[in-house]
């Protein structure tokens, strides 16, 4: 028998080796494992994480956080200046006991106040 014939014989035998193969048996505790997986899946945290981890939701949350940050930075920047200015002025006024806007006519009434 030539080596080519031998190889052909091997191929035929290999192709037939699954004839009469038995069915592989699954884990006897498969149902218990399924139950555990389903219980875990039903958990509130699991549901929350699976919802958050969806790409579209994750992207939307990221954009929202970035938008809120941007708004906070730009918005609070201009407000901070005015608030800061008025706070400084009133601080100074308190420190030096300055009575606000006293004009000439009021000098006469100073003792009445």
């Amino acid at each position: 028998m030539t080596s080519k014939e031998k190889i052909q014989q091997e191929i035929e035998q290999t192709l037939q080796c699954l004839d009469g193969v038995k069915r592989a048996e699954s884990n006897p505790f498969l149902f218990t494992r399924i139950q555990a997986r389903m219980a875990k899946k039903d958990g509130a945290w699991e549901r929350t994480f699976s919802f958050i981890s969806k790409p579209i939701i994750a992207m939307a949350i990221l954009l929202l956080v970035m938008a809120v940050n941007g708004w906070a930075l730009l918005g609070s920047g201009s407000n901070d200046n005015t608030n800061g200015d008025s706070a400084n002025v009133s601080e100074l006024a308190n420190e030096y006991n300055v009575v606000a806007s006293v004009d000439n006519y009021d000098y006469e009434n100073l003792t009445n106040e």
Binding site: R23, S26, L30, R33, M38, K41
Partner: peptide, 27 residues
């Protein structure tokens, strides 16, 4: 379960993966 496991096992050719996937199938 055996039918599902055997089918998956034949395709993925890995016992551990086949078991996990059989669970997925029934879920």
């Amino acid at each position: 379960k055996d039918m599902v496991h055997n089918t998956i096992l034949g395709i993925v050719q890995n016992e551990t993966e086949a078991e996990d996937l059989a669970q997925d199938v029934f879920i």
